Amino acid sequence: MRTEQLKQEIIDYAKEIGIDKIGFASADVFGELRERLRRQQESNFQSGFEKGSLEERTEPQRLLPEAQSIISIAIAYPSRMKDAPRSTKEERRGLFARASWGIDYHVVLRDRLEKLAAFIQEKVPEVSNKVMVDTGELSDRAVAERAGIGFSGKNTSIITPEFGSFVYLGEMITNIPFVPDDPIEDSCGDCTKCMDACPTGALVEGGRLNAQRCIAFLTQTKDFLPDEFRTKLGNRLYGCDTCQQVCPRNKGIDSHIHPEFEPEHDLAKPKLEPMLRISNRSFKEKFGHMSGSWRGKKPLQRNALIALGHYKDKTAIPEMISVMKEDPRPVIRGTAAWALGKIGTVEAFRAIEAAMENEKDDQVLFEMEKGLEFKYKS
């Protein structure tokens, strides 16, 4: 079969199975990306979650020796929650970023890509391919940019004309030599709204992110959150959408195309206090299907404590005291002590002082001392 005909059949089939955008790119080395990644490494701007060596991340033939093309796909997700529950003084709520609403997108996109791979194999039995979604070695964004899915914005997101940057990305390396699509011209212009709005200044320049300062990354870490970022966290439990929310290219865009990405209210905006005591089993049953659960409950519980401190939620003090005294994990005990000090009631300060008498962990004691410092700042 001629590749031109096969390409059109793939495009048509992609629409049938719920792929919103599809593009075709060459499997040439990503030379410019390699230089950017090298700069990121030298500046220590990487998150540490990246997979593969510099060569594997920029040379498709390292992953599929016979690679000739890469098929890039994009699937849109919602940017607004209908009838979203409100956070009240009696029931404070946290927030999962939009990319974690609904079913884990890794599962959904891999399913679409595998269906696409099976379709191609029916047409070309001798085909070779490799499917990746987010956790693969290749940069989804670099592939999508080359394939004409969208342009890479100053916020480092791929921005599509149809769905803005609210899209999930995945790709398939193949040995079929498809004619590549043309990239889309960069349309950010002089706009710097994303850079100006970033809570931590993680966007050090247009298109360059210091992941070590990015709240989306910080919410996924498991250690104590550095002090400078705690006040920036707000009520975020997982991820951050600020640089997407302020982007003019996302104005008015809200794509409710795929039911599997619709947010479940009590999961996308869960009550904070119940998060503190949730068991491993209950956590997996309740949140396990969401992409935001991949790091387990510990980072989310730490973030929930910081959010309760941010809200100065006095109703949560008894539960937070219990966590500070009884939780076996130093990060959770210490963060609870800090958050209690942030709330700043007499009861909270007395509880910290009492807990210090039995605490043996130096890091937790340090956090308790920081919690007590709020007494002298108020």
Rank of each mutant, 00 (worst) to 15 (best):
L63C: 07
S79L: 07
S291D: 07
N44Q: 15
E228P: 10
F166Q: 07
P299S: 02
E359I: 00
R2P: 15
F151L: 05
F119T: 00
E50Q: 08
E91K: 13
A142L: 14
M81G: 04
V204G: 01
P274E: 05
R329W: 09
S322G: 12
L95G: 03
A355S: 06
M132H: 11
E137M: 15
I306Y: 03
E16Q: 14
P330N: 04
V133T: 01
K286Q: 03
I343V: 09
A197M: 13
G239I: 01
Y311D: 11
G23R: 11
Q8R: 13
Y311G: 11
H106P: 04
L267T: 15
I253E: 07
E285N: 15
R295H: 10
I70G: 11
L138V: 06
G153H: 00
R86H: 10
S282K: 11
G150Y: 03
T58C: 11
S72N: 08
I10Q: 04
G94S: 03
V167F: 00
N175D: 12
N44V: 00
D104H: 09
G234E: 01
E145P: 07
A84R: 14
K7L: 02
P161E: 08
A336M: 03
T3C: 11
F49L: 10
V246N: 08
S291L: 13
A27V: 07
A144Y: 01
E114R: 11
N235S: 12
G48A: 06
V108C: 12
S322K: 12
P125Q: 00
K51C: 15
L54H: 05
I321T: 05
T345D: 08
D134F: 06
E264P: 10
K375D: 04
R236H: 11
A74G: 07
E171F: 00
A76L: 10
Q68W: 13
S139C: 05
Y311N: 15
R333D: 01
A144K: 09
G201D: 09
R80V: 09
S152P: 15
D362F: 14
V108K: 15
S26L: 13
C247N: 02
A14H: 06
E359V: 04
D361K: 14
H289S: 13
Y168A: 04
E185G: 08
K154Q: 12
K297V: 09
S53L: 02
N175T: 04
A336T: 08
E145C: 14
Y168C: 03
I103M: 12
S47P: 08
S291G: 11
I317A: 10
Y105C: 02
R302K: 14
G52W: 05
E285F: 10
D28M: 09
C243N: 02
S187W: 01
P328Q: 05
K298Q: 10
M320A: 01
E369C: 12
G292C: 05
S26F: 01
R295Y: 07
E145Q: 13
R39V: 07
P183Y: 02
I306C: 04
R333C: 00
G309A: 02
E16G: 02
K284M: 15
L54Y: 02
H256M: 11
D196E: 14
P125V: 00
I176N: 06
E122P: 03
N358A: 10
I103D: 10
K298V: 15
I317T: 06
P177Q: 02
